[in-house]
Computed example of a mutant assay.
Amino acid sequence: MNKTQLIDALAARYEGNRKAAAAALDAVLDTITREVARGEKVAITGFGSFEKRIRPSRWVRNPRTGERIKAKKTAIPKFTAGADLKNVISGAKKLPKLELPKKAAPAKAAATKAAAPAKKAASTAKTAAVKKVAPAKAAATKAAAPAKKAASTAKTAAVKKVAPAKAAATKAAAPAKKAASTAKTAAAKKAAPAKAAATKAAAPAKKAATKAAAPAKKAATKAAAPAKKAAATAKKAAPAKKAPAKKA
């Protein structure tokens, strides 16, 4: 059995899907080859193991000339059969009967084949519709281009007209703004000395008033002291108020 026949045998298990069977077989073989080339051992339980072995250099004889030559050290793949594979080959173990899935592929293929003309017609109609719409769309775009360009030009012209007027207004307002700022600064400078002078002039009067009020406050406190003392003495000397006796 070669690879093609092996794919056919696998396709019978994939409900006649030969493409899926070929992809599965290629994926398995590619994975095993890559892992063994890297030096990994690929062991499939019951089937066997694949591994990389290093064959040392040795003397061999050329079968054509009979001359002895030295063979270089080389890496070789090695397959070791598993226990289940050995038992099946020797006849000690029997494989169960293979049950293949029912073939539904012909009906599916017939349905696909029957639907192909309708699919092709739909695709053709879609392509024709696109082709018909494309010129109309291009014509509409072309017709709208002058109007779009005119609108853009008008917008640019309006912006250009507004810009000088705006600049002139800003320039005209600049002196008035500067004059207002200067007047405000001058007013602040003029008001500062007057405020400082008023504060300075009020300070002596405030100090004199405080100084003049101090003796009067002291005399009032001194005059009130004897009266306060007499009131305290009278309160102390007054007899305690007796409680009225209860009647029998």
Rank of each mutant, 00 (worst) to 15 (best):
A122E: 12
K119R: 15
P96R: 05
T141A: 15
A115Q: 13
T31E: 10
A145G: 04
A122Y: 05
G46T: 12
I69V: 11
A145P: 00
K73F: 01
N2D: 05
A43N: 00
P146E: 03
A194V: 07
A43P: 01
T156C: 08
V88F: 00
A186V: 06
A157F: 05
I32D: 07
K206G: 09
K3T: 11
K184E: 08
F50Y: 07
S152C: 09
A154L: 13
V60K: 12
A11H: 01
S90C: 02
A147D: 11
A220G: 13
P96F: 06
A21Q: 10
K217M: 03
A230Y: 00
K131E: 13
P215A: 04
T4I: 09
L6P: 00
K73Y: 02
K171E: 02
A238K: 14
F79R: 09
A92P: 02
A157Y: 05
L10G: 10
K200N: 09
P226Y: 02
V42K: 00
A191R: 01
K148V: 13
A234E: 13
A219S: 05
A238M: 12
K108M: 14
V162E: 06
V88L: 08
A129R: 14
S57N: 04
M1F: 00
A150F: 02
K108Q: 14
A165W: 00
S123H: 14
P101S: 03
G16A: 02
K195L: 04
T156V: 15
A234H: 11
D26P: 03
